[in-house]
Every structure is written in structure tokens, then in C-alpha cells.
Write a protein that binds this DNA or RNA. Sequence first.
DNA 1: GGTACCAATTTTGGAGTCAATATGGGCCCG
DNA 2: CGGGCCCATATTGACTCCAAAATTGGTACC
Lengths: 228, 228
Amino acid sequence: MAKSPPADVAAEDALRALETAIAHDIHAGLLPPGTWLKQIDLQERYGRSRGDVRRALDKLVAQRLVQQVRNSGYRVHPLDPQRLDELRQVRLILEGAAAETMVGRADAAMLARLRGLATAFSLAVEHRSILDQHEANQAFHRALLELCPNAELVRLIREARLRMPSAPMSQWPERGWVEESARHHHAMVDALEAGDRDAFCAMVRAHIRPTGRIPAAAMVRAPAPIAD
Amino acid sequence: MAKSPPADVAAEDALRALETAIAHDIHAGLLPPGTWLKQIDLQERYGRSRGDVRRALDKLVAQRLVQQVRNSGYRVHPLDPQRLDELRQVRLILEGAAAETMVGRADAAMLARLRGLATAFSLAVEHRSILDQHEANQAFHRALLELCPNAELVRLIREARLRMPSAPMSQWPERGWVEESARHHHAMVDALEAGDRDAFCAMVRAHIRPTGRIPAAAMVRAPAPIAD
DNA sequence: GGTACCAATTTTGGAGTCAATATGGGCCCG
DNA sequence: CGGGCCCATATTGACTCCAAAATTGGTACC
């Protein structure tokens, strides 16, 4: 049953690889919101069969990252300010709750790794391209999420982050925010190291930047009710 | 342009209908966890083409309600105690956060409707089949969720609830829980009517019952101080 | 009597093909 | 000169068919 046939794993990973490749290009800004994703273009762009493209697109539709219009094809989901703010609130809820479970779970090696990723991001902010900054940021947060023991929660957070279409790219250029992000990362590691749960959670929440306008009325209060 | 072609809408709804039909049968216990979902069976069971069955199955896989094994087909996702508990925590997080946003948004008509659905559930508990109870419960919670202004959050909650495989059916029969659920529903409406946010949120959290047995080993240590 | 092997059947996965529909340009008419 | 209609093209969506793989049942052997 659970053998390890390379062909099977390869095929399965290949499908997911295509899916994440398209998602990556969307986040990188190569496929701006509203762009029509013609199957034939993707087919030759990624060198895959049409069926694979179609299945990957369907998965992306299930994640609401792309939109399907009957008999017109798929297109990158246009970003709606309302939806963007709702997504931000969802991230606040999920990542805030996850933060509660993370403090105290990092050993020395993990702390060192996180510190390294935080400094890598700082360096990227100074000397590298925006795309590299994006990568470094994702790497840091990916590692951070490994501390959360709730696999389902982690999956949900990953999906929620994935669902934010091109948000980073369009708003990062504002000088000052990236640098603040870098400081946030280091502060998170500091709090983790000190075992200061409140500081850590506060930093995680502060890190989720408000989208353009701040409708304070819709803010959710609520600290996480999660069991350890 | 955007004419009103019944074919398009019908086709789109038809696909989703098949998807929800399968999900419904899974929740109803007709397709227990671990069951192999042979495409040909579903094809003749729901009277749909194989392509439709496949696409619906893929969507269900994306929602982690069914599992796909290469060259062996799809099967209902087996319920793992660990995963079930993680899902419960996720529901606590999401529904608890949603509850915070609901108080004060219900007008008189909505309150009356909720009250009616709560009593309908109570009646179902007394006089109807388990399946009817399940339906009544879903109807109440569906209506309740309409109070949440965050559409993305609502979607996430619906998906999370959908992802719980057959949990209600397998554990509801324990006499006492269903009746407590009915009381919970009425208490929620009471709190909503009184505008008592804390009471409402507490009730929502209490309503998310702990998963059957608590495998202390699987717990991430720490007593789960769920609800209050 | 139990076990291991082998063949037949069933089921999946994918590719190819074909009809239906939207898009864009050109043409005709006002 | 501007607007509306019609047709050619390209793209999508669905059905069908075929090969590959796994499961099942049977049989022979130990």
C-alpha cells in the first residue's frame, strides 16, 4: 500500500508544482489581477499538457485565487478592497491564534534558523530586488509556521496567505514598510527567545499591515481562545 | 454578453450540486470514512457523466473531505483523532472570532427566524430522525452565519464545518448531547436578543463539543481550557 | 489446510477529438 | 463620419476512446 513508487510521487508533485508555479507567478506580479489565463499559453509556458493546466486552474479556483467565467476561461481574481480587508481580518484571526501556540516551542536550533532568516530578509531589503525580498519574507514565515503544532491551522494560514493576490508587490514599494517588517521579524524572534507570549502575539498582529484604509469599526477584538 | 442563458447557470449549479450532494451523503453517514468512491458507482448513483464526477471529486479533495490515492481512486478521508481535534480547535478559533462580530446585527425579523429554527431543531430532537436533526442543525447555523459581515470568514467556517467527516452522525446518538445542543441554540438567540456579546460568544464556544475521546497523548500537552 | 503465484476483470488516468461559444475585425447602413 | 450587424477565428468545454495499474478470484503447490 504505502510504498514509495517514484513515478507516482513525481506525478503528484508535478501537479502541485504547476499549481504553485502559477500561484507564484501571480504573487510575483507577472500575472496581475484581472489577467486572462489562456490555457494554451500556460500549456506552452510551463510545458504541461492541457489537462494538467486545467486541473491546476481548478484547484486555484477552489482557493479563490483565480476566477472562472463560464465559456470565457479563467482569470486572476481581481482584488476587491472589501475582500482584501476581510482577508486581512481572517489573517489576524488565524495567525493571532497560531501565535498563541508557538511561544516556547522553539529550540536553540530553530531560534538560530529564524534569526538567520530574519537577517537574510533585512539584507534583502537593503541590497536585493523586491522579488528576492518577497522570497525571503516567505521563507521566514514558512519557518515560523513550523512552530505551530496544529497542522490544519497551518494549512489554513498558508491558504489564506496564498489567497492574497499580489498584495505584497503592490504595496511593499512604499519605503518604510519593508524596513518595519524586517524589524518586526527580529522582534518576533526576540520575543520567542524571551518566551514572552504577549509580546510575540502583539508583534504578529502588528505585522499584518492594514490594507490602505483602516475601517476601525470592523476590527475584531478577541484574543485567541485556543487551547495550548 | 451577460445574457440569461439557463444552460450556463444550470451547468455551473449542476456541478456544485453534485459536489454538495456527495458531501451531504458523506455527512449523512451513507459514505463512511474510508469508503472507496468508485467513479462508476457515483456516475450511476447521481446520474452524471464521469467527467463531472471527477471534477466534483477533485473539488472535494481540495477541501480535504476526500483523499486521492494515485492509481487507486478517491476515498472518504479517514478520520484521524489528531486531525479531528485540530479541526475542532480551528472551529473554535474561527467561529469564536465570527461570534464577536455578530452581536447587534440581528433585526427583529432575523431574531424571529433564528428562534423558529432553534425550536424546529428542538422539535426534531424530540420527534424526528437523526438525519432530520442534522438538517435542522445545519439550517440554524447557516442562518446564524448570515449575521457575520465578513464573507471570507463565513466561507472559511462553512468549509471547516464541511471538512468534519461524519462527526455529527457518529457522536450525536449519545443521548443528552443533542438536547444540550438544542438548549445552546436557544441560549444563543437569547444572548443575541439581549445584546450580550460575552454570553453569546461563550455559548458559541461551548457549543463546539470536544471530540469524543481525548487521546491525552495526542494533545499538545496542557489541559484544553476550551470555552468558559 | 494454508500459502503463494498467476491470470482475468475492473477501474483509473490521460490523450485526443469535436461541438459550442465568446472575441475581434470588417462591412454595410444611416 | 459614426454606429450597428455579421462573419471568421480562436478558445473553451465536454464526450469518447485507449492504455496502464491495481484488485479480485482461482489454482497449483508445499
